[in-house]
């Protein structure tokens, strides 16, 4: 049986070390069947890119809170920008993490 991933084709760009760590968390928390390295740092996480939705956002927020001690809120004006792609999310988490 040949299992393929139902996500963006792999076009590997360079991930920073923290982006690698966060990509690993995304793949683990959401049980994605891709390797963390396949998440393009600047490709959209939601919709047409990685294909995540609001159900995933909730799960991801939990994992980020557990791992980095940072709580995401939807009244944050930058919420859409924060979740735009791996790079934006990594910047936000790295800046605001408490552990």
């Amino acid at each position: 049986m040949n299992i393929e991933t139902a996500t963006h084709p792999a076009e590997i760009a360079m991930q920073s070390p923290f982006e690698q760590e966060l990509a690993m968390l995304i793949v683990t928390a959401l049980h994605l069947e891709i390797s963390p390295a396949e998440i393009e740092p600047v490709a959209p996480l939601f919709g047409d890119g990685l294909g995540l939705d609001s159900i995933d956002a909730l799960e991801l927020a939990l994992a980020i809170s557990r791992e980095f001690g940072l709580e995401l809120k939807s009244d944050d004006d930058r919420n859409r920008a924060i979740f735009a792609n791996l790079r934006a999310l990594a910047d936000h988490v790295e800046t605001h993490r408490t552990k």
Partner: peptide, 8 residues
């Protein structure tokens, strides 16, 4: 107001 994430 907002009420989506646990923190909200």
């Amino acid at each position: 107001g907002p009420a989506f994430y646990p923190a909200d």
